[in-house]
């Protein structure tokens, strides 16, 4: 892979750039707002950009899709920060966890930690909004939403079940 250089632009964001094998110099500015600028440097004046393409977030996603890069991890990273204080997390249900095989309502997750299971991924298939009688099975991936602290508590609860309940002090901000 080409060597990518990073430069911070105070008050604007970050610039990443690299030279293509054919000698063109390309760059991307990631603005704090999430907007990106695709830069093609001028061959005659290598300090300046010959072409600047403004990309809103959707445009960046579309371009990345076209170029074959996986946007999934970035999308997740962004979601973690952006949903107003809430975090989305992916919890793999381990066979040793006390919750495996239990219906969701028996874990007491919602009542004790405020964390909701918004979807379960089982064998590559996504089950959206599982109801409270839905049984979690080992190997499931539970998609949960809650505050960062509550998710920590939720993991403890799902692992240890009843024993953890006393240890968990619900803390709301």
């Amino acid at each position: 892979m080409a060597k990518i250089q990073e430069t911070s632009l105070p008050g604007v964001g970050m610039r990443h750039e690299f030279t293509t094998q054919s000698g063109d110099h390309l760059g991307v500015i990631t603005h704090r707002s999430g907007r990106r600028d695709l830069l093609v440097f001028d061959r005659a004046d290598p300090d300046a950009c010959g072409v600047v393409v403004r990309l809103e977030e959707d445009d960046s996603d579309a371009l990345a899709e076209l170029l074959g890069a996986s946007q999934v991890t970035q999308g997740v990273a962004k979601l973690r920060q952006e949903v107003g204080g809430l975090v989305i997390d992916w919890l793999p249900i381990n066979p040793s966890w006390s919750c495996s095989g239990c219906p969701i309502e028996e874990t007491g997750l919602q009542q004790q930690t405020g964390v909701s299971i918004v979807a379960v991924v089982r064998a590559g298939e996504t089950i959206p909004a599982p109801d409270s009688s839905f049984r979690l099975q080992p190997g499931d991936m539970a998609v949960v939403v809650g505050s960062p602290d509550a998710i920590g508590q939720a993991i403890a609860l799902l692992q240890k079940g009843e024993a953890a309940k006393k240890a968990v002090v619900p803390e709301r901000r």
């Binding site: 430069t7 911070s8 632009l9 105070p10 008050g11 604007v12 610039r15 760059g27 500015i29 600028d37 830069l39 440097f41 290598p46 300090d47 300046a48 950009c49 600047v52």
Partner: peptide
């Protein structure tokens, strides 16, 4: 369209 230019980090700093 000069935010990407090489002199810009100097100007901003």
């Amino acid at each position: 369209d000069r935010l990407g230019n090489r002199e810009t980090p100097t100007v901003l700093s």
